[in-house]
C-alpha cells in the first residue's frame, strides 16, 4: 500500500484504498488504549509538534495522547494569530520549528489552506487538525471508523449532516470521506448555511429536517456557532433549535440502528438535546475514543521516510 502524499491535508484527495489503509491501521492500534500499559515503543525518538493557532482542547488532547501512546515526544505550541502584521508570520514560525528538527507537524489554524501553505514551505509531514472552514480530515476518518465499527460497513449507508454546512470543515471532510467509501450523503440546514452549488459535490440538499432524517443510517449533527459576524443566518437559536434541533421526539422517528454523531463540543439544547446526545442512538463518546486510534494511525503511517521497494 502506498500513500500518494506524505501529508494529510484533507480527505478530498485521498483514494478509497488510502482511507481504508488509515482505518485498518487504526483498527489494529485501538487495542493499545485498552491495555494497562497504554504505550508501544513504535515512535520512540520521534518528535511531534502540535501547532495550534486556535483553541481546541479536544483535538489537541487527542493528538497528544495518540502521539504519547506511540512513545513520540510531543510539544504543544499554542500561537495567536491576532497580530499577523506585528508578529511572526506562519511561514516564519514554521521555518523556526523546522530548524529544531521535529518529525511531524500537526496544525490547527483558523485560516483555510494554512496546512497547504505550510506543506509548501517546510520539509516535514504536515497533518491538518482542522483549517478554517476547509477540512478536518482526522475527524472525517474517525467518523468513518466509528460508523464502520458500529455498522460493519459504510457502503450503501445514508449519512445526513445537519446544521451549518457552509462554515463546517467537518462537513466537507465527511462529504468527501463517506462518498468515497460508498455512502450517500444528505445535507440539511437553513439555505443561509448551505453553500450554493453543494449539489455539485453529489450530495442531496434538504431544508427541512424530517425528510432529511427519513431512512438515514447516520446523523451527523454539527455544532452551531453562537457568535458570527454580519447578518445572522437565522433569527434566534430558539428558532434554529425548533427547526433543526435533534430532540427526543425526532429520535423516535429514526430507525433503531441509526447512529447519532456530533464532532463536539455540543451546545446542549441548541442543535441537540441532552437526551439525544447521550441516548441509545448516540455514538458521540465512541467518536472521541476512536479519535485517539485514528490519530495514532495517521501519526504512525506518516512518520516514516518514503521507501522504494
Amino acid at each position: 500500500m502506498t500513500l500518494k502524499s506524505r501529508h494529510l491535508l484533507g480527505l478530498e484527495n485521498l483514494t478509497r484504498a488510502e482511507i481504508e489503509y488509515f482505518l485498518d491501521t487504526a483498527g489494529s492500534l485501538k487495542e493499545i488504549s485498552s491495555r494497562d500499559i497504554k504505550k508501544v515503543p513504535t515512535l520512540r525518538g520521534k518528535t511531534v509538534i502540535n501547532l495550534f493557532f486556535e483553541a481546541s482542547t479536544r483535538t489537541r488532547t487527542s493528538f497528544e495522547i495518540a502521539a504519547k501512546r506511540l512513545s513520540a515526544d510531543t510539544i504543544n505550541i499554542s500561537a495567536s494569530t491576532s497580530s499577523v502584521t506585528k508578529g511572526e508570520t506562519l511561514i516564519d514560525t514554521a521555518k523556526n520549528i523546522e530548524a529544531m528538527r521535529p518529525d511531524l507537524v500537526v496544525i490547527r489554524h483558523p485560516a483555510s489552506g494554512a496546512p497547504e501553505l505550510l506543506s509548501r514551505w517546510v520539509d516535514l509531514p504536515i497533518i491538518n487538525a482542522g483549517d478554517g472552514t476547509h477540512e478536518h480530515p482526522t475527524q472525517g476518518l474517525l467518523d468513518l471508523f466509528t460508523v464502520r465499527e458500529k455498522r460493519g460497513k459504510i457502503d450503501g449507508l445514508t449519512l445526513a449532516i445537519i446544521g451549518d454546512i457552509t462554515h463546517s470543515r467537518v462537513a466537507r471532510s465527511d462529504i468527501y470521506g463517506f462518498q468515497k467509501m460508498g455512502a450517500r450523503v444528505r445535507v440539511c440546514g437553513p439555505p443561509t448555511l448551505i453553500p450554493p452549488g453543494i449539489e455539485s459535490l453529489g450530495v442531496q440538499k434538504f431544508h427541512r429536517l424530517e425528510p432529511a432524517l427519513e431512512g438515514a443510517d447516520v446523523v451527523m449533527v454539527l455544532r452551531i456557532q453562537l457568535e458570527r459576524q454580519g447578518t445572522p443566518p437565522f433569527p434566534t437559536l430558539r428558532e434554529y433549535s425548533k427547526l433543526f434541533g435533534i430532540n427526543l421526539e425526532r429520535l423516535r422517528r429514526l430507525k433503531p440502528d441509526t447512529l447519532i454523531m456530533h464532532p463536539g463540543p455540543i451546545n446542549r439544547g441548541v442543535e441537540i438535546s441532552p437526551e439525544a446526545a447521550y441516548g441509545s442512538h448516540s455514538v458521540i463518546l465512541d467518536q472521541v475514543e476512536n479519535g485517539v486510534a485514528v490519530r495514532m494511525a495517521v501519526l504512525y503511517l506518516l512518520s516514516g521516510r518514503s521507501v522504494d521497494a
Binding site: 500500500m1 508501544v40 515503543p41 513504535t42 506511540l70 516514516g304
Partner: peptide, 15 residues
Amino acid sequence: LYRDDLPLKGPIFRL
C-alpha cells in the same frame, strides 16, 4: 510496533 528496524525503515509493514 515493536520491530527494531522501525526507526530505520519507517511504517512499511501493514499492522
